[in-house]
Design a protein around this nucleic acid. Sequence first.
DNA 1: CTCCACATGTAACCGGTTACATGATTTT
DNA 2: AAAATCATGTAACCGGTTACATGTGGAG
Lengths: 187, 187
Amino acid sequence: MLKFAILGFLNYRPLSGYDLEQQLRVSTAHFWYAGLSQIYMTLKKLEADGLVVSEVQEQEKRPDKRIYTITADGKAEFGEWLAQPVNKVEPTKSTLLLKLFFARPVGRDAVLHQLRMMLQAYRGKLTEYTGGLPAEASEMLASQPELQDDSIMWGIVQDFGIRYAEMAIAWLEDAIHTIETHFSEDV
Amino acid sequence: MLKFAILGFLNYRPLSGYDLEQQLRVSTAHFWYAGLSQIYMTLKKLEADGLVVSEVQEQEKRPDKRIYTITADGKAEFGEWLAQPVNKVEPTKSTLLLKLFFARPVGRDAVLHQLRMMLQAYRGKLTEYTGGLPAEASEMLASQPELQDDSIMWGIVQDFGIRYAEMAIAWLEDAIHTIETHFSEDV
DNA sequence: CTCCACATGTAACCGGTTACATGATTTT
DNA sequence: AAAATCATGTAACCGGTTACATGTGGAG
């Protein structure tokens, strides 16, 4: 639900749709991202439902911005969502795992090639994640010490991304090794 | 794309919609599951597109079954999909991580409670996954030794599930510890 | 007698992706 | 001169979820 991601960010401060996309990109991209078009649509719906209000802010030498602010209703609905626990392991869909499951007919070399590409991709992700908090977040933290508890949560979430990437890398390395030594076909 | 999961299973042998649901449940559930209604809809579309054909098989003391068989066109399209590599890290959506990211206002105790519940859930999943291949798959393997290479891929995919659960458990344990020792609020 | 397994479907909805459309300013 | 950044939107499509609808036979 992108709706709640947006309300969450607007709960800190008012932002435009364009700003929100950047927020998502720098802070939640690895577990929740949305393109601009979806953001604009969602904001429109949120405003229609009275959960946010907007006003146009004129800018010189830049296009006008429409700044959205969360309303009391919006805060209430966001709080309700937040408090409601996630009670089950969320079902995931992985095209990669699905393909791998059926991959035998494509043959040893093609599978190995695929896995090596994925390995590279995850190594890239890992160095990206271990870069630490982006400057923006650090600034925000320094200027608002009341965000300390928030930053604990941000760290935990970021840690998940790092561990996930590390897990995926180790798994891919071992998978490549297993296939190299056990997969019989080499047509 | 459930479509390809279905073609993948039908590529081994003809099955009914009901059979397919069971296949998904015992072998791909942790990275690809679909309910019966979606399976039936997809099968209908697949047949309309000429990728599968069906015939009704009458049964005594059980409702009739509609058995689906993959066609040459179906095999071709499946093979094409299989060969096409996954070139990027797939974007994921995690409600749990999103909630955690914004979780500060719900307070220390509620967050800890949520995390402990998730921990329990993942521990359950792990014992479920480490139970080894279900009897069905073992039977199929024993009776058809040409499935050896397939079984290597099945093992790799299953291994991912195990490692994922282990990673999630360790992460949750550490997250709980971090919050217990650093989260200031205890309203 | 009730619940579970077997067996197949339809319809409404919803969240998300992709493509399209526009246009100024700044950087390379 | 071209490409990237800033900035906002519409429309078509698509895959998946949930709810609804129906019916038999066997097990507890």
